[in-house]
């Protein structure tokens, strides 16, 4: 999956699947579905990825912060971010924006 810093003709936006919420703990983020309960328990650095994408909507805002948190260089940080997003899209926790119905 290629990542673009901005949405455009080659880009899609993703958003939370319906009925998904999350709780931030001391060292984790727990992701819930309204009926099924806890779907994911994220430790760091994945929890940091989730926390940042819940606050910022541009890769340019997220990558520098994530790099500091994770102690990674820029390329590794982007790889981490994209890996998380791919996984969450595949699992259905994130969906393509506009497809929530």
């Amino acid at each position: 999956m290629k990542i673009n810093p901005k949405p455009g003709p080659r880009g899609i936006a993703v958003e939370l699947a319906p009925r998904i919420g999350w709780i931030v703990e001391e060292g984790t983020v727990r992701v819930f579905e309204a009926e099924k309960g806890e779907l994911l328990k994220l430790g760091y650095p994945e929890a940091a990825v989730w926390d940042l994408i819940s606050r910022y909507s541009l890769e340019a805002d997220i990558v520098p912060k994530l790099a500091v948190i994770g102690g990674l260089n820029r390329a590794a940080t982007r790889a981490l971010l994209h890996s998380c997003l791919r996984g969450w899209l595949r699992s259905g926790i994130l969906v393509q924006a506009g497809s929530r119905g």
């Binding site: 899609i12 999350w22 709780i23 819930f32 994408i53 909507s57």
Partner: peptide, 20 residues
């Protein structure tokens, strides 16, 4: 009370490209 801590966000947009 613990579920009151659940956060959700109607718009949770993050721009990515798709090559699935």
């Amino acid at each position: 009370a613990s579920l009151k801590r659940l956060r959700s966000k109607k718009k949770f947009l993050f721009p990515v490209a798709s090559e699935i």
